[in-house]
């Protein structure tokens, strides 16, 4: 098990190293373009060359890359061109905001989707099962921008119950999180619920469940003690992978509601060609992607006793 974790961890580091190198290659090979970005379009060639010399850009590429990696590991990603502030100062509050959003989405979505998925999976073909399938396909197939516009039209313009944006300009306000969380939960719960339902339905038809039922065990004990643990293995992986989506896949929702999260920061960085910010955001996004994959792999192995690896198998 430890070997598996170590191997996966090594692969994670390798992926990050490769991505960082490609990133650096793309953004920092053309030194004059970097200087032009920082100093602005009206800067002269002479000003750009002076800046490059002062900032050490005239050193070999690999030396610069090595220094960039060292600084990045210390949390120093340079200064944002658009925001005129250290990237680290921008990154952490935005990550915290996205974590709040993601946390609330998880808090609502996981119990809801697991409950509905399990209930539907327990009685395949029932009215509940069909109803859930219909609802989840509907909500998942409506893109976030459409459901956001619909909810804003209803709750902001028509009923006037909720704030229309989530910029938190007057300080933290829970009510401003209602609409973005609702949009994300609506979009995502159906997917997880359907995965849970499929997994539960499969488990419920397995021999050991049939044996347990035939043994005369009460249905709730069969479900809770025997079916649920196995049925939740597949949704676990799916849920962990949603972490990645909730960080950088929610750009549309964060921009729509002017929520100052990581997704909106990534969007701003990309729109304005803010090189240092793009680099930092990309590395964070890649880290979360590979780390959630790592957690998912290791967790799946721990939860599923049928998966064992060659080194630890007793023949």
């Amino acid at each position: 098990m430890l070997r598996l974790a170590a191997r996966r961890f090594g692969a994670m580091i390798l992926i990050m190293a490769v991505v960082s190198f490609i990133l650096f290659l793309i953004f920092e090979t053309d030194k004059l373009a970097v200087a032009g970005k920082v100093l602005g379009p009206y800067s002269s060639l002479e000003q750009r060359e002076l800046w490059l010399e002062r900032e050490g850009y005239n050193r070999p590429f690999l030396v610069r890359y090595g220094e960039w990696v060292t600084d990045a590991l210390r949390g120093d990603f340079g200064e944002s061109i658009r925001f005129k502030a250290p990237v680290a100062d921008l990154l952490w509050p935005r990550l915290a905001n996205s974590a709040i959003l993601a946390g609330l989405v998880f808090l609502l979505m996981i119990p809801l989707s697991l409950l509905l998925g399990v209930l539907a999976g327990m009685r395949e073909g029932s009215l509940l099962d069909r109803g859930l399938s219909f609802l989840s396909i509907l909500t998942t197939s409506v893109p976030e921008f459409a459901s956001a516009a619909f909810l804003v039209a209803l709750f902001v313009f028509e009923l006037r119950w909720l704030p229309g944006t989530s910029a938190m300009t007057g300080g933290f306000d829970w009510s401003q999180l209602v609409l973005p969380v609702a949009v994300l939960v609506l979009y995502d719960f159906g997917y997880v619920a359907r995965m849970t339902r499929a997994s539960m339905a499969e488990v419920m038809t397995s021999h050991y469940i049939r044996t347990a039922i035939l043994k005369g065990l009460p249905r709730h004990r069969v479900v809770l003690r025997h079916a649920l643990r196995n049925a939740l293995i597949a949704p676990f992986t799916v849920i962990v992978l949603q972490l990645n989506w909730l960080l950088s896949g929610v750009i549309v929702v964060e921009v729509f509601f002017a929520y100052k999260g990581f997704g909106a920061l990534l969007y701003d960085a990309a729109m304005f060609g803010d090189i240092y910010l793009i680099e930092a955001c990309t590395m964070v996004a890649v880290f979360v992607a590979v780390f959630s994959q790592f957690v998912s792999d290791v967790g799946y192995t721990l939860l599923n006793p049928r998966i064992r690896f060659a080194g630890s198998t007793v023949r």
Partner: peptide, 21 residues
Amino acid sequence: IHYYDHGAASAAQLAAFASGQ
């Protein structure tokens, strides 16, 4: 005088206005 950035899209500006933000 407070200027708040809700993005360049006028839809978000209008949503902020509609809800009294």
